[in-house]
Design a protein around this nucleic acid. Sequence first.
DNA 1: AAGATTGTTGCTTA
DNA 2: TTAAGCAACAATCT
Length: 295
Amino acid sequence: MPELPEVETIRRDLSKKIIGKKITKVLVNRKNMIPGMTANKFVDNIVGESIKKIDRVGKLLIFDLKTADSSTKLTASKYLLMHMKMTGQLIYCDNGSCTAGGHDFPKVNKLPNKYSHIIYHFADGSKLFFNDMRTFGYARIVNQTGLDKILQEFGIEPLKPKFTVDNLADIFRNRKTNVKNVLMNQKLIAGIGNIYADEILWDAKIKPTRIANKLSAEEIKRIYQASNKIIKKAIEWRGTTFSNYVDGNGKKGNFTSLLKVYQRDGEKCPRCKNVKIKKIKVGQRGTHYCSRCQK
DNA sequence: AAGATTGTTGCTTA
DNA sequence: TTAAGCAACAATCT
């Protein structure tokens, strides 16, 4: 589930908890969560470092482990990258109280559990659990060059100054595929996934199967405005989670009740109240839309 | 029991 | 070169 709003929520929560903390021990229970590096090397690389800053690009979290010393930046920089993919969770625990980031599937009972593949210990005794049921997620360490290379792969970040209606129009102009897949293409726009693509297109009244380069300027503007509106609101509501997720602070953090179409197939469209939400497949992904409102 | 599930990568084809 | 369209990755739930 984690898309931009969820990962941003995790970033903000964790920033409050672990900035400045020193990593004293790291347990790796599943080596395949760390591609391209042995578990030992991974651990050696980060034990003794402390968390200076947490950034995010798209759905990727970037933990800055070194001070940005301007004179030695190139050699001194070290970043821990973590991606949640489909089912990853990052849960911070401090004396029995836990702040869960991520989603609730499966439900977090005890920690560590069988899905706790990497466990970071901090000097003050607190811990950060990287859980992932399906183990699609990963952790890796890069230097400045490595990070720059990765950042280049990402498209425009919604809510950032570069995300303008003109830039969005440029992206759509040469794409001959459906608009939903363009919205979800991380190399073009960073952070939108299956849930928010459906929600944005419903809000913009655009059918997900529309070919991107056939959209009018007015339609592109609607998609642009809907993107800003939905993503902002989802972050405000601390992202979308299913069923019974509650974070360690007891807050619901739930955009789910505000979803208009996602997972609401069969229900009446909340706008026209006339037609049932349809579910189809677009580029391998379940896609929800209103056949009356969305043209 | 088959088909679904939040994301990405890498292969094939055009 | 680049874009589009799939299958695959793994573990669950319906």
